[in-house]
Design a binder for these strands. Structure first.
Lengths: 119, 119
DNA sequence: GGTATGCTCAACCATCCGGTTGACTATTGC
DNA sequence: GCAATAGTCAACCGGATGGTTGAGCATACC
């Protein structure tokens, strides 16, 4: 019943699209620590303020960021729920990569001279 | 140390980009059940074989699908590891949406006439 | 009041994306 | 051998993306 809410927050295409950009993932990562202004988000990202502002609007449109104006500063806040729905989609495939990793471990275990060093 | 391998498989941008399309996610979902040919993957997806072929190539480029030719049929096989690296990136944010869901539950618990029905 | 700061908006540009069509290759079945 | 089947490839097209510049608008500071 909570899952229903999680799934409805934004459509998958747009969420994954929003995540398909390093600058935006960088922003999300830093917003996970604390709220930041547009300028602070832009600062380490070799691009103009206008470009950063557009990235933030992409994140806002899919519900990943909420922006509140405080004086002349626009403060951004992480809204994590769309990430939960993306994670939920991925979780369906977990058994597949688990099997794959089990196979790998089996391979390592049967390695005769293995000392933990991979290659 | 296995994580190292998982993270290296493909760059995040491309993986999330590949997932940012419903047709491609549909393909992955069905490949999770069983291997399928290009034609079988295309069949339920209102688009030409050529378009489907291009989607499959996107999935191949990021390592999500491996294609083997068998006669005139091209059989596609799910390669799940890039999904694991996407999931790993998302897992970092899990605590955020967990907190958020806890807040929601708290809200529901304090609801005076709550009977479990969400609107 | 006047100037610097923080940010948005609109216009523009090059590139990418998702789709089509048409031509082509290779296999299969009669 | 010939026609049908299964796919790929290249060219093209319209719309989305990711960036820039320049203008404009509030707010903060002296």
């Amino acid at each position: 019943m909570l899952n229903y809410m999680v799934d409805q927050i934004a459509d998958m295409d747009a969420v994954f699209q929003a995540l398909a950009n390093g600058a935006r993932r960088n922003m999300l990562g830093r917003l996970a620590e604390t709220d930041l202004t547009v300028g602070q988000l832009a600062e380490p990202l070799a691009m103009t303020l206008a470009a950063a502002s557009k990235h933030i609007k992409v994140l806002e449109r899919v519900g990943l960021v909420r922006q509140t104006v405080s004086g002349r500063r626009h403060v951004c806040h992480l809204e994590p729920m769309p990430l939960a729905s993306a994670a939920a989609w991925l979780r369906f495939y977990e058994r597949h990569w688990d099997e794959r990793l089990d196979d790998l471990e089996l391979l390592f275990d049967s390695e005769p001279t293995g000392d933990g060093e991979v290659r």
